[in-house]
């Protein structure tokens, strides 16, 4: 089994992008931290042949739901990004694509994030979101189409 450090090195950036797309810039770092802490805890039980990235995105999905439920805090408009405690600029905070992504209906937003940012297959996306592979594929395609429309309109 690979040392966990390698898992962080290989997938840390991808999970951060997914977190930013799914919970927004304010909660993204908390979601990333909770995802990797939970992954570290469960790592010894992960099957050798498992798709590590899909496993991490699945955990990130659960952590995002937890954060969403816990809070009252939700994906905020991009002009309300707090500066306190954030040492580095979140390049997605004022990125028009991420801003448009966050306005998509949940299912489309998550399907686009997990497929295009997380690199999951439509089948793996379906396992996370429920529903069929075809529905996950459609949600992702609709999401991209809506994204284009919104970006062209803006």
């Amino acid at each position: 089994m690979a040392p966990f450090e390698q898992v962080v090195a290989r997938h840390g950036a991808t999970v951060l992008r997914v977190c930013r797309a799914v919970v927004g810039p304010v909660d993204a770092e908390d979601a990333w931290s909770e995802t990797f802490l939970a992954a570290l805890r469960a790592y010894p039980e992960l099957d050798e042949g498992a798709n590590t990235e899909a496993w991490l995105v699945t955990i990130a999905h659960r952590k995002a739901i937890d954060l969403y439920r816990a809070g009252t805090r939700r994906a905020v408009p991009t002009d309300e990004v707090p500066e306190h405690g954030v040492l580095d600029r979140d390049p997605t905070a004022h990125d028009p694509v991420y801003a448009a992504l966050r306005t998509l209906p949940d299912k489309q937003r998550l399907a686009v994030a997990y497929h295009h940012l997380g690199g999951l297959s439509h089948r793996e996306v379906a396992q996370i979101l429920g529903g069929t592979e075809a529905a996950a594929r459609r949600a992702s395609a609709d999401g991209v189409k809506n994204l284009r429309t919104r970006l062209e309109a803006s």
């Binding site: 797309a21 990797f36 040492l87 580095d88 390049p91 694509v97």
Partner: peptide
């Protein structure tokens, strides 16, 4: 979808997140 992959200060953010993870793990 290359515009969905901005790099920006990502390396520094990830280094900071790694440090936070190591502290929590300890």
């Amino acid at each position: 979808m290359s515009e969905l992959f901005p790099d920006g200060d990502e390396a520094r953010t990830l280094a900071r997140l790694h440090e936070r993870l190591a502290r929590a793990a300890d």
